[in-house]
Amino acid sequence: MAKRNSGNPNTPERVTGDAPSQLERHQDPGLPPHRPRLADKDPKAANRAEKQVSILFIVSIIGTLVFFIGYFGVDISNDVEALRLQNMLLGLGTAFAMLGIGTGIVHWAKTLMPDHEVVESRKPITKEADRADAERIVGDILDESGIKRRPLIRNTLLGAMVLAPLPAIAIFRDLGPLPGDKLSHTMWDEGVRLTLDPSGTPIRAADVTIGSAVHVIPEGLKEAEHKLEEKAKAVVLLMRLNPEDLDPSEGREDWGYEGIVAYSKICTHVGCPVALYEQQTHHLLCPCHQSTFDLTQECKVIFGPAVRPLPQLPITVNSEGYLVAQSDFHEPVGPSYWERG
């Protein structure tokens, strides 16, 4: 503890402004004495370090060569194994090339470059006098422009400035069409056959066994003008369960056919496909945010962030035994939006 009193050049100075407390400060012992490194004292160690650095640089050279071997030496056409090998060689080569240079330079800096810590004093970011000058100059500029004395100029200029950027917003109007009622209609309509996704084969009621889940698109989707947009709204999940498990509400008794029911596959939360059907629990699960819908309760939400049940597509069977839609969905499918109502 003796050195405490010996004094030192780096007496701590008070922080700028008023320190609220701690008027009594501890004595700063100053920077610890410099401890020489091995390489500073022993020329052999310095030579060793020099060799180590150059070995690291040579490793880098080898790395670059490995890259070229990987790039030119491996034929990747139609061969995933070769591609994997090439990718690894490129990675290995680049990694060695870069790490060799990087670790070499750092090792050089650490062992051979001076390691005396340097003290630099901080200069104030700004001078008080400068600030006063700046304030005065800005004041003068404002005065000379006369903007404070001539409110008419100021007010009309403000008005112009507010309006002028509006065209820059308006010009983006043609980024897209207005929604109109597009969100509330799909391709489904009376008599449109239910077909398999992706093949487009129509489905017979007799082909849907109990416990099955069929991913369905409307007939003619492939020829539709906006195929993906239509598909994004119209995809349906078709399931068959024992009719006694279903308890349709009033007005929906004939929306299914002998236990076959069709529900929109688009989650009412934010629109992921709710495609996970558990055939024993009759739950539908959305893999994105885990909203769970109970098929036996007309796809009411029983877990997760969704609020509305999945819309049901009323279906029936046509004279040839194929499943067809009775109409479009009776409500918009997918996530909620303001005008949905």
Partner: peptide, 14 residues
């Protein structure tokens, strides 16, 4: 040197 090290680590991961 550290730039090359970060580059090398990323190359290894890639």
């Amino acid at each position: 040197g550290f730039f090359f090290i970060v580059f090398g680590v990323l190359a290894l991961m890639a």
